[in-house]
Simulated assay, not measured.
Amino acid sequence: MSKPKIAIIIGSTRAARFADVPTQWIAKIAKSHADIDVEIVDLRDFPLPFFDEVASSAWVPSTNEVAQRWQKKVAEYDGFIFTAAEYNHGPTAVLKNAIDYAANEWNKKPAGFVGYGGVGGARAVEQLRMHAVELQMAPVKSAVHIVWADFLAVRQGEKKLDELEHLNQAATALVNDVAWWAKALKKARDADVVDEEIKAA
């Protein structure tokens, strides 16, 4: 079985976003894990309109070309780590919109979160966990929460994320969880494909 492929999805597209900092940091940690392949996926490369299809792509194929390209991209991966800024006690609109523009492509794959902002992005992450469950994903228990004091220290150049040991430990646990679930669920999905081929033969 090939190594699971994990996407680190940048959950903000603002020009002044902080997201690039935790993205590069978690990607470095994830890329050191021997059991997974890792790729960064930037929502700026997928300028999706606000959801404007007749129904979810689970039921009706999307007509928008960017949406189709996004769905194909999501389908490439066996698991996901999302950076999750917290705006007004919730995740960014652009991330929720991107999640809604795919459906079956998320199914039976793990999801992990790197939150930042008020209370470490915990409220945004909690909402994203519920969205993940609805999409038949497996949100992992471990998460990274970059609390406001750490966020400001990094933003102002006083600290770097890799200097904060409590965050390094949380990131390692998150990557380990996503890697384990990605491997297990990939094996199960592959077995389902074989079973379907046997039934069709």
Rank of each mutant, 00 (worst) to 15 (best):
S2W: 02
P4H: 03
K5V: 04
I10W: 00
T13Y: 00
T13C: 07
F18S: 01
A19S: 15
W25D: 06
K31A: 15
S32I: 04
H33I: 05
H33F: 08
H33S: 06
H33R: 05
D35C: 02
I36W: 01
I36Q: 00
E39M: 05
V41P: 07
D42R: 03
D42K: 04
L43S: 09
R44S: 12
L48F: 07
L48M: 08
P49K: 06
P49C: 08
D52P: 00
E53W: 09
E53R: 03
V54R: 11
W59C: 00
V60Y: 10
V60R: 08
V60K: 09
S62N: 12
T63F: 00
N64A: 07
E65A: 14
Q68P: 03
Q68M: 10
R69L: 08
R69D: 14
W70F: 09
W70T: 05
W70R: 06
Q71E: 14
K72E: 15
K72I: 07
K72D: 13
K73M: 12
K73R: 15
V74T: 09
D78S: 10
F80M: 08
F80A: 08
F82K: 03
F82W: 15
T83N: 04
E86I: 11
Y87V: 11
H89Q: 08
G90T: 13
N97V: 08
A98E: 06
A98G: 13
A98T: 08
D100P: 05
A102D: 07
A102L: 08
N104T: 13
E105L: 09
W106F: 07
K109M: 05
A111S: 15
F113W: 10
F113R: 01
V114A: 02
G115T: 06
G118E: 11
G121N: 02
A122L: 10
A122E: 07
A122T: 10
R123L: 13
A124T: 03
A124Q: 02
V125S: 01
V125H: 02
L128G: 04
R129D: 10
M130K: 13
H131N: 12
H131G: 00
H131M: 11
V133F: 13
E134M: 11
E134A: 10
P139F: 09
A143N: 10
H145I: 03
W148C: 00
W148M: 14
W148T: 12
A149W: 05
D150P: 01
D150A: 08
F151D: 00
A153D: 15
A153V: 04
A153P: 00
V154P: 00
R155Y: 14
G157N: 05
E158S: 07
L164Y: 01
L164F: 01
H166W: 06
H166I: 10
L167E: 03
L167W: 04
L167F: 06
N168S: 12
A171Q: 06
A173K: 12
A173Y: 05
L174P: 02
V175W: 01
A182I: 04
A184N: 07
L185F: 12
L185H: 02
L185G: 03
K186T: 13
A188L: 12
R189W: 06
R189E: 11
D190Q: 13
D190V: 05
V194F: 04
V194R: 05
V194N: 02
D195R: 14
E196Q: 11
K199M: 12
A200D: 09
A200F: 10
A201P: 00
